[in-house]
Design a binder for these strands. Structure first.
Length: 884
RNA sequence: GCGGGCGUGGCGGAAUUGGCAGACGCAGCGGAUUUAAAAUCCGCUUCUGGAGUCCAGAGUGUCGGUUCGAACCCGACCGCCCGCACCA
């Protein structure tokens, strides 16, 4: 293949090429400045008529102070989409901002005495500088932080509109309470049931709080998932399960003896068909009847207190060992005369779901089975699995939860589960003991936070007038600057003056709401604000109507439920309060995987950063590690998500210093499919760096010999045509890969193409010294541009010296269909499904020709010799299979 | 515990979505160039067995099924990851 050049000649060229090095450290800032100077990525709030808009958005970062590899990955993915769509002729809006409220700023304030605002804005400045070094095609003129009063003031206006529209209400809910610190704790601040700072056992506490009425939209939020055809199926499934529509029944059980005025307990069940298999009734510890029991019995009170120590997280509740307390109360069975069951308080019954009470049917529910087994309650099967004998069927290891025939159940006997549900609901409704209902798992969204660093909720509490909205003319309700973090609790609450205001309605002394908003509220509408970030109203109609929905949203899978669901709700709320005209904010969604790395631990147990470790490879392939510059052994840990605590992080800034932004971007795209977790590897980055240099050398070395720009490559023959075919196939393949987010495949195709060009260059045949060669080099430059934008500009300036155009402004290359067609194709030939050979046939060969050629192939002929052919299978373009 | 996902060589992965498993890259080995090194270029690289570049067998977490044919579809199991409503 390479015989045209002698080894010596090749070596000489190689040496000459080695001199050609891409100086990324100089080139990258230069091109960034050039994009900036030309305002390449700035777009107007209202696009000009006829412009085909495309809105690319990555989930905005929390300003922790440093960007991490997860950011680099997410923003690189988004930037490839933005640059590609721009090349395809779209007017692309690609903004950036900061999710700037939240707990870490308050933690910094408490630990280091820095004001949360100072800490946050300093972090933003540092991260903005780092992001700018990545060469992202962002419209920085749209930047804002959610902690800017200009932003949260508009959010307060939205809150008031929601309040007026009946989308906000005040009700009581349980929070994690640290009795020592006197503070509400986030779930992540509860460790093994104790406060993370005080170590005191956490208690549940009932507080009056603000809620957004997301449940009003539950049916619509569920149904509209069906229209989100560019969302991952798994995300839609997770949301559907979270919303949790279930059909069932509410059943009222009469207490055999009324207590404290209560005469019945209402339960929700999705399995009314199993009513005859009931053996107990269980209520949540927060259920009103439990309080009645506690008042009568100190042991019940003690049990409820124990349940309160479990915290509020659903995971903690469901994973805890099932425990219960028999209240001594009894309820009557709705259909069985004289039959009654005990009422237990159970730690696995959730007050938030259904009615906070269930009837226990151990035979056909796993949790009830576990509970009944533990406390010796009866386990009566009422659903008979298909084929089982009713006389002998027994439940010995676990509940039976599948379909079957109802038995042991009076008037339901012989029915299927579905029929029995219908029949029992009819009877309950007829006798007034219950109703068929649709129940939702989704709960209203509690947005109150007893914290300083958040958006103040703009209402005033007046003893005479009740809850009074702050007049819009007085917005924003600004956070006070002078706050004291030396005391536990909410600084807004114990600020000397801030909360004392006059009632806007009656003028008498009143009290400002001191709760601030959940930071999920901030991120539930920022995508809309980006369309007109300086507007004097939350959004401007012309801008949001033109730009929304977001065409491609990109972020971590960890946001699959909450953030995305809240944003979908908020968009509906904004629609119903006249700010927007659409319901779904994100037309396309892509969820990327995490960035992971091995962790390293020294003998003394301390975690080590990757750069502190020396890895060595034994001849047998086993890897071992020592501390760099010493001999102390290091344990190589699991590959896991990068985290500060395990020190398995790689600093993007250091990578960009060493290899440049293009290399970092290229590696992060090339390693694996973007939806999967990726493992950061130093060797992989080095490989990406080598490739960027190789591309530079290849173009730079060829430029002096290329024909002038614009020379037609049409009509090329022989090797030149082969090169053109490779070029156009690569254009088609890379385009297809970018369209489907298969960026790693796009990279592989570009690698392959570079190999092909390299072979053609080495062949040094006259045919290559022509327009086909220029076409190939220009194509690879433009195909790589969304991924390595700085290098592409550099190469383009070599290929088209003196030209004014930037790659960033060029249209995407088009593949010529004529050059994509193949004349022959290779078919695999199997005998009995095993590969025995391949044949080369013309693309238009008929079946008889194909079978003849297949049977004639040496190895195939040997395999079928002497065996009668029973069946011949030919899938055109794919395969031939002989069944003998 | 519940809901969702993933699992392919030494490593990351590819596979036209049921049709040649391992493209491309990393690591490794061998060679060229070099006084030497770096850099660069070329070649080999799933495993086992036999042989000159070929042949046979096995092989996509494990076990079973459907099919002419399974990484892909179905069932069971194992392992890892994400979420569980006050982290963002």
């Amino acid at each position: 293949m390479n015989d045209a050049a002698s080894p010596a000649a090749r070596a000489a060229t190689a040496a000459a090429r080695a001199e050609l090095r891409h100086d990324f450290a100089a080139a990258e800032p230069r091109w960034q400045a050039e994009w900036d100077r030309r305002g390449c990525f700035a777009v107007p709030d209202v696009p000009p008529a006829g412009a085909e808009k495309y809105y690319v958005l990555e989930m905005f970062p929390y300003p922790s102070g440093k960007i991490h590899m997860g950011h680099v990955r997410c923003y690189t993915l988004g930037d490839v989409v933005a640059r590609y769509k721009r090349a395809r002729g779209h007017l692309v809006m690609h903004p950036m901002g900061w999710d700037a409220f939240g707990l870490p700023a308050e933690n910094a304030a408490r630990e280091r005495g820095i004001h949360p605002g100072t800490w946050t804005y300093d972090n933003i400045a540092a991260m903005r500088a780092e992001l700018k070094r990545m060469g992202l095609s962002l419209d920085w003129s749209r930047e804002f932080a959610t902690c800017d009063p200009e932003y949260y003031g508009q959010q307060q206006a939205l809150f008031l509109d929601f309040l007026r529209a009946g989308l906000v209400e005040r009700k009581e809910s349980w929070v994690n309470w640290d009795p020592v610190d006197g503070t509400v704790l986030a779930n992540e601040q509860v460790i093994d049931g104790r406060g993370w700072r005080s170590g005191a056992p956490v208690e549940k506490k009932l507080l009056s709080q603000w809620f957004f009425s997301i449940t009003k939209y539950a049916p619509d939020l569920l149904e509209a998932l069906g229209g989100l055809d560019r969302w991952p199926e798994r995300v839609k499934l997770m949301q559907a399960n979270w919303i949790g529509r279930s059909e069932g029944a509410r059943v009222r059980f009469r207490l055999t003896e009324p207590v404290e005025g209560a005469s019945e307990v209402e339960v929700f069940t999705t399995r009314p068909d199993t009513l005859f298999g009931m053996s107990f009734l269980a209520i949540a510890a927060e259920h009103p009847l439990a309080a009645v029991a506690a008042a009568k019995n100190p042991d019940a009170a003690e049990f409820i207190a124990e349940c309160r120590r479990m915290g509020t997280s659903e995971a903690a509740i469901e994973q805890a060992e099932k425990r219960g307390f028999d209240t001594g109360f009894r309820v009557a069975h709705p259909f069985l005369e004289g039959v009654s069951f005990p009422v237990w308080i159970a730690n696995f019954v959730l007050m938030e779901y259904g009615t906070g009470a269930i009837f226990g049917c151990p035979g056909h529910d796993e949790r009830d089975y576990e509970f009944a087994s533990k406390y010796g309650l009866e386990i009566l099967p009422v659903v008979l699995p298909p084929g089982a004998d009713p006389a002998t069927f027994a439940l010995t290891d676990g509940a039976y939860v599948d379909d079957g025939t109802i038995f042991n159940s009076g008037f339901l006997d012989g029915l299927s589960v579905a029929d029995a549900k219908r029949r029992v609901i009819d009877r309950l409704e007829a006798t007034g003991q219950g109703t068929g209902v649709v129940n939702w798992r989704l709960r209203d969204w509690g947005v109150s936070r007893q914290r300083y660093w958040g958006c103040p909720i703009p209402v005033i509490h007046c003893e005479a007038c009740g809850v009074v909205p702050v007049p819009k003319s007085e917005l924003p309700v600004r956070l006070p600057e002078d706050v004291d973090f030396s005391r536990p609790g909410n600084p807004l609450d114990h600020h000397p003056t801030w909360k004392h205001v006059d009632c806007p309605s009656c003028g008498r002394p009143a009290r400002r709401e001191t709760d601030t908003c959940d930071t999920f509220v901030d991120s539930s509408w920022y995508f809309a604000r980006f369309c007109s970030p300086r507007a004097e109203e939350p959004v401007t109609g012309a801008a949001v109507d033109a730009w929304l929905p977001v065409d491609q949203y990109i972020g971590g899978i960890e946001h699959a439920i909450l953030h995305l669901l809240y944003s979908r709700f908020f968009t509906r709320g904004m629609r119903d309060t006249g700010h927007l005209t659409l319901a779904e904010p994100f037309a396309g969604l892509f969820t990327q995987g995490m960035v992971t790395h091995e962790s390293y631990r020294a003998a003394d147990g301390r975690w080590l950063y990757p750069e502190e470790v020396e890895i060595s490879l034994a001849p047998d392939g086993t890897r071992s590690a020592t501390v760099k510059g010493g001999n102390q052994p290091v344990t190589i840990g699991r590959v896991e998500s990068m985290s500060k605590s395990k020190r398995n992080t790689v600093d993007p800034g250091a990578i960009i210093d060493r290899y440049g932004a293009d290399t970092a971007r290229w590696f992060i795209l090339s390693d694996n499919p973007p939806e999967r977790d990726m493992e950061w590897s130093e060797a992989g980055v080095a490989g990406a760096f080598r490739f960027s240099q190789r591309l530079y050398r290849m173009v730079a070395a060829a430029v002096p010999d290329l024909p002038p720009a614009g020379t037609s490559a049409a009509g090329a023959e022989g090797a030149a045509r082969k090169l053109r075919q490779a070029t156009h196939r690569t254009v088609a393949a890379v385009t297809e890969a970018l369209e489907t987010f298969a960026f790693n495949v796009a990279v592989a195709r570009i690698h392959e193409f570079a190999n092909t060009i390299g072979e053609a260059e080495a062949a040094a045949a006259a045919e290559h010294r022509g327009a086909a060669r220029r076409e190939a080099l220009e194509a690879i430059t433009r195909l790589a541009a969304p991924m390595m934008p700085h290098l592409a500009e550099e190469l383009w300036s070599l290929l088209r010296p003196g030209g004014a155009a930037l790659v960033a402004d060029l249209p995407w290359p088009e593949a010529d269909p004529d050059l994509l067609r193949a004349e022959t194709l290779t078919l695999a030939v199997q005998v009995l499904g095993k590969l025995r050979g391949t044949i080369e046939v013309p693309v238009d060969a008929d079946e008889a020709t194909v079978f003849a050629a297949a049977a004639a192939e040496d190895n195939v002929a040997r395999s079928i010799a002497g065996r009668p052919i029973r069946k011949r299978i030919h899938v055109p373009g794919r395969i031939v299979n002989f069944v003998v």
